[in-house]
Write a protein that binds this DNA or RNA. Structure first.
Lengths: 299, 299
DNA sequence: TGAGGGTCATAGGAAAGGGCTATCGAGCCT
DNA sequence: AGGCTCGATAGCCCTTTCCTATGACCCTCA
């Protein structure tokens, strides 16, 4: 049974004439006759009564033709769906973003994309690098925004921007009065960090590699905003990325102090699988990020 | 786009592996690859992302595969419908019967068929010979039970039975006391007939061809039962076929008198289009009629 | 009644589509 | 670097499908 055969029997049913049906289907009458007969034999049912008075649908034929119409309709919809899906800027883009970037990038990014690529909504997964890596490789995500270094076989990355880290301390803390601070000056005992698993935690520890041991338990917050609150409450000091310290995030209780050179930074990139089929979607995403008003250095 | 191609992409989507999908579809991997590629080109959409990490469905691919599944489902139903329609004794039989036969044949016929061919319900059209002829030739009916002579190009008839005509008169009418009557004895002025268009009217007039002119207006009834009532009311005499005069139709007010030889008769037949695709259904119908307990002579 | 026209089926050969085997090439892994 | 996995490509073959020509049948009309 083929879609062509189904088209043929629908045409015969509608024209009640093999010749006219053949014409409509742009084939010769013998071809159409043979196809119809072939289908009748495969189905084991006589679909049409061929009489000198004309062609009539049999009882079974009527039901089968009706079902054939439904089938052809669904088949047509395959093409319709394909047409709609042809535009790479159309259709959901499944994007992963790590916890320490998402809250500070997403609001502006979503707004920008809604303007530049209105038919490409984002399906955002906020998670840790390890989980996003797994999901990207498993095909559950099309792209991931995370901190470098990141890569591996089959993965392509596009650097987006580099952002500086800044120290944050309670307004009344001695540090708060300084204009800048060297990483070595930070007191490991006071430092508040994200839990294990967050790459930002490792980056901070890396930058301040003078800290021989991680801070004791109780000196952790589950998100950068939690850390900020903890600092505001005077529980200690911490380090945040610049994007978490824009005007919209300021608090009178927390002062941020820039690091003296060499200032620790992190590089943020967009990662995707090599050979991803919608490069245009990625380019749009990269372009949108680069045009955002962020306290970062473009790469 | 072919159903085979749709089957292939569904298999690839489910296995996420061209080789395994090919195995499932009982084709070689290159054949399947080529078909998938072919479909992708026809649709203008990349359905699968082929990476070394595996095969992933694209956004558009997911939608298209879902639609392909629906299409294949509908296609499967074509076969299901065909299976159900394969039995010639299954499915409605559209049967026409003339007005002067239907009321006396149908009740018993329907009962018999419900027993012998329970999956072949009758869709009965009661009408005049002229209308039934048109409907049969137009394919709106599969068979017609009517009085001979009937036929023509493309039409086949099977004689069913022959039934005698009988005169009917009010119980107090002089005729009612006779044991038999010759057609010539009937009084044309008293005779009640069906309206023009009923073949039975013509048959009665034919049999009693001594009547030079049809009876005047007002001496007509729209059905045999109306004629019987009119006779019962003493409005005149009439002629009815034997099947309208069985025990279940007797009335104390109406007497029926048989005709002396040569007794006028009508021959009832089953007509169908030559080449009708369900001869078994017709045979069943003929058999059922012949086994009925009717006051007729089988043919 | 016999010629003509209409309609679907059959026959035979050509073109194309789809299948197979063998092989390639890219990329991963050891 | 070499082996392995996996999808793509190449080249060939065969089945399927299509076309033209013709046949069979039957209705119609002179």
């Amino acid at each position: 049974m083929t879609l062509t055969e189904l088209r043929y029997i629908v045409a015969v049913a509608e024209t009640r004439h093999f010749g006219h049906a053949a014409e409509r289907c742009h084939v010769s009458q013998p071809s159409l006759s043979a196809s119809v007969k072939n289908l009748e034999e495969e189905l084991g049912v006589t679909l049409f009564e061929r009489g000198k008075r004309g062609v009539f649908l049999t009882e079974a034929g009527a039901q089968i033709v009706a079902q054939a119409r439904r089938t052809l309709e669904e088949a047509e919809r395959v093409k319709t769906v394909a047409r709609q899906g042809r535009d790479p800027l159309k259709g959901v883009l499944r994007l992963g973003i790590i916890h320490t970037i998402a809250p500070y990038l997403l609001p502006q990014l979503v707004a920008a994309l809604r303007r530049d690529a209105p038919e490409m909504p984002l399906d955002v997964e906020e998670n840790t690098t390890a989980n996003l890596d797994r999901m990207l490789k498993a095909g559950e995500l099309e792209a991931v925004i995370l901190a470098l270094p990141y890569g591996g076989p089959g993965i392509e990355t596009v650097p987006l921007y580099e952002e500086k880290f800044r120290a944050v301390a309670p307004a009344k803390h001695a540090l708060a009065r300084k204009k800048s601070v060297a990483v070595e000056e930070l007191d490991a005992g006071e430092l508040l960090l994200l839990p294990v698993g967050h790459c930002f935690r490792d980056q901070v520890l890396d930058a301040c590699n003078e800290f021989s041991r991680p801070p004791e338990a109780g000196r952790q917050g589950n998100s950068l905003e939690t850390l900020r609150s903890m600092v505001a409450s005077g529980l200690g000091i911490s380090v945040l990325p610049a994007t978490a310290l824009t005007a919209r995030h300021v608090s009178p209780l927390v002062k941020s102090i820039e690091f003296s050179a060499p200032c620790p930074v992190r590089r943020v990139a967009l990662a995707s699988r090599r050979g991803f089929h919608r490069p245009a979607a990625l380019e749009k995403l990269v372009g949108a990020v680069r045009e955002l008003d962020l306290p970062v250095t473009a790469l």
